[in-house]
Every structure is written in structure tokens, then in C-alpha cells.
Design a protein around this nucleic acid. Structure first.
Length: 380
DNA sequence: AAACGGTCCAACCGCGCAAAA
DNA sequence: TTTTTGCGCGGTTGGACCGTT
């Protein structure tokens, strides 16, 4: 059973696209759109299969594609999302609006994966490869759990996909409340824009909002974003899935220095988490430790602030600390070993020392996230 | 200048899922 | 309910490009 590969049809061309073919495809899509990829080649007069046309369009011809080097922020986003989502490139690409999944996948395979490996971090699990590195202070167990936590959490959250449509409708309703006609937010990223960025819902089924600090044009200029795990899911979430606790994941961004961004809450939560800057972070429960975040019922709200990128400090909501000294030592060595490569991959300017410092913070943050895995969770 | 090896990326392939028949 | 069809996703590949010898 199963249908034969579409490109097995005799006479269909494969291989690199010519400018003429590109032109035909573009003209056809501009004129008719791409409602049916299978019918498009005929309409466009192309000897290609629809699949090939779709690929060419989505990966190359689409007008809203940003090409060229990835910025440091984009790299951060990719790594962070990969830690949570794994090789779900389309989901990751959703949050880098001008990048294609193929491009992100290629960039991961050719750059980021190798760089992580060089630093002694397993690019698959996002945990340090050397157990001895962390075992001294007993952190290895925590580090080892991130990927499991992420996979487990993703699986659970994906189960919410069935309920996404309801969530979307609620978000849409909230959008109207937040941004009624005539309402003109002063910042570049209004709350309504955040609501609009619910691709997370549609792609992964996670009932929350992910925003990587993009403005309306999708530029990765903001250095602010936050990650919220909330367990205040509406009752329907629990009953529908037979899960007593259904954490919500919300990635919420703000523009740099602006204070008008809110955290979009799902229905069932009683209020907005506030429209102030995420730096205020009013949502931390006293005594809650992000360093030992847990997805059990003991945890109700968790917000990770990523002001200025994922620095270790930004990931610490309170005084509770994670001993990352050993990892940092490793990073120091790694950075000094790999400074040349880091410079090559720098998307921005600045001298090497600045970049090294930023880069160190950046990798610190990744490792800190690794270190913050919920080893205490009964799930593990 | 030629050969060789490594890197990068556009494109292909196969699979899974969902909708349509 | 079963089969067919179409779409989208992730993994893989082939060839162009680049640096080194």
C-alpha cells in the first residue's frame, strides 16, 4: 500500500532549479497562490512535482526569507528551543519567522552541533558529556535530566494539541480585550502582537505563547524574553487528558527596556500576570527555586527571565544558586580554545573580548539551564 | 596547477498524519 | 471502515565551493 513517490512520474525534472523555473513558479504563486501544490506544476508549466515546488518556495523563493549569517540571538533561540523541542525544526523555525526549518536544520548540523560538541556538551541531550565535570558537587544527576524533562514535557504538552483550537479562540478574545480598536501601544511589541505570535500553539500544540523578543517585523532585536511554566491550566485541560496537572508553557518577550509587554494567560487563570516589564517578575512564588524547577503539582508558576539574553543571573529569580563553577571553568577553557571559531560565527560587531564575554554568558546560560533540570522531580 | 579532503547547503527521499473518496 | 491522496516534516545526500598540500 502507500502511494509512490511523486517524483517517480516519468518526465519530471529533479535537481537544481534554473532561474527560469524559479520565475515560472514565482509568477504562478503570485497569480494564483499555492492552494494545491500538486496542481501547481501544471498551472505553472513546470516539469516538477508539487513537492519539489513547495520545497523550492518554502526554502528559497518565499519573499520573507532572511538569508545570511545567523545572529547570536538567533543562535541562542535555536539552542534553547532545541533543548526543549529536539529536532523539531519546523517548530523551531516558527519562532525564527524569517528562517526556514531547512536552514535552521543545516545551521544546527554544520555549526551549532559541532560547537556544542567542542564544548563538551552533548548536542542531542544538551547536557555536559563529562559526568566527572559535575559529579563533584552532585550536579551531574541534575544535568542528566534536562533532555528527559524536555522530552517528557513536550510529550505532555503536545497532548494539548487537541485543545489548541479552544485556546486559540480564547487568545483571540484576549487580543481584542488587550488591543481594542484605537488602542495604540507605545512599544514595538504590543501585547496583541504577542498574542498573535501563537504559532507555538498551532505548531506544537503547547498551550502558551512563545515570543523570542521579535518585533512585529520579526527582527531579533530584543534581548528580553521570558519563559513561564504555569500549572494553572483550566479544568478542561485536566479532564480532557486524564492528567491531573497540565503545565502550560509560555515564552513571553518584551522589547528592550519597554514596559508594555504582558504575559498572556490562558483562560482559567484569574488575571494577567501583569503588563509591566518582565524584569519586575511579580510571579515568583516565595521560596520557589528555578534551579530545582519541578513539573509536579508542587510547582504552580515558574517564570524565567532572560533579560539581556540568557545570562546565568537572568535565570535566577531569587537568591538560590546553582553551583556552576566547574562548568564555567570548562567554558573558560573552551572559549579560549575556540575563540577563533566564535569570532567566525559572530553575527554582530564588537571586539573579540566583548564577544567572548557575551559568548561566555550565553553558554553559561545554556549550561545553567542544563543545571536547572528537575532532578528532584518524582518523574525522574 | 592539480589533487585531495573537508565543509556547507539546496534538494531529494521516505515516512507519518489527516482529509477525502 | 478502508483506501487513496496530499501535505508537511525530519533525515540524508550530492555537488559546489574552499582551503590545504
Amino acid at each position: 500500500m502507500g502511494r509512490p513517490p511523486c517524483c517517480d512520474k516519468v518526465g519530471l525534472k529533479k535537481g537544481p532549479w534554473t532561474p527560469e523555473e524559479d520565475q515560472k513558479l514565482l509568477a504562478c504563486i503570485e497569480e494564483l497562490g499555492h492552494g494545491s501544490w500538486s496542481a501547481l506544476p501544471t498551472k505553472a508549466g513546470l516539469q516538477r512535482c508539487g513537492k519539489s515546488c513547495r520545497l523550492r518556495w518554502t526554502n528559497y523563493l518565499r519573499p520573507d526569507i532572511k538569508r545570511g549569517n545567523f545572529s547570536l540571538q538567533e543562535e541562542e533561540t535555536i539552542i534553547q528551543l532545541h533543548a526543549l523541542l529536539g529536532n523539531r525544526w519546523s517548530a523551531i523555525a516558527t519562532h525564527l519567522p524569517k528562517r526556514t526549518d531547512n536552514e535552521i536544520k543545516n545551521y544546527w548540523n554544520t555549526h551549532l552541533k559541532k560547537r556544542l560538541a567542542k564544548m563538551g556538551i552533548d548536542p542531542i541531550t544538551h547536557k555536559p558529556k563529562t559526568d566527572a565535570l559535575l559529579s563533584i558537587d552532585g550536579q551531574s544527576k541534575k544535568a542528566a535530566n534536562l533532555s528527559h524533562m524536555a522530552q517528557w514535557e513536550c510529550a505532555r504538552l503536545e497532548a494539548e494539541a487537541r485543545l489548541v483550537s479552544e485556546s486559540k479562540m480564547r487568545s483571540h478574545s484576549l487580543q481584542h480585550q488587550l488591543n481594542p480598536p484605537g488602542f495604540a501601544p507605545s512599544g514595538s511589541a504590543s501585547a496583541a502582537q504577542l498574542v498573535n505570535k501563537t504559532a507555538w500553539n498551532s505548531t506544537t500544540g503547547i498551550g502558551g505563547v512563545l515570543n523570542t523578543g521579535l518585533d512585529a517585523a520579526g527582527d531579533l532585536e530584543s534581548h528580553t524574553s521570558s519563559l513561564t511554566f504555569s500549572e494553572n491550566a483550566p479544568p478542561i485541560m485536566s479532564t480532557g487528558l486524564g492528567v491531573s496537572s497540565m503545565p502550560m508553557v509560555e515564552f513571553v518577550g518584551t522589547t528592550s527596556g519597554s514596559a508594555e509587554t504582558g504575559i498572556i494567560k490562558e483562560e482559567g487563570e484569574q488575571d494577567w500576570k501583569g503588563l509591566g516589564s518582565s524584569t519586575n517578575l511579580p510571579d515568583y512564588k516565595e521560596g520557589m527555586e528555578i534551579n530545582s524547577l519541578s513539573f509536579t503539582s508542587s510547582l504552580h508558576d515558574m517564570t524565567i527571565s532572560m533579560e539581556g539574553g540568557w545570562t546565568p543571573e537572568s535565570l535566577r529569580p531569587n537568591s538560590s544558586q546553582v553551583n556552576v563553577g566547574n562548568i564555567n571553568d570548562s567554558i573558560d577553557r573552551s572559549l579560549s580554545d575556540n575563540g577563533k571559531e566564535s569570532d567566525e560565527n559572530s553575527g554582530g560587531g564588537g571586539d573579540g573580548s566583548d564577544y567572548d564575554e557575551d559568548n561566555k554568558n550565553y553558554w553559561n546560560s545554556i549550561l545553567n539551564l542544563v543545571n536547572s533540570s528537575p532532578s528532584d522531580s518524582p518523574m525522574f
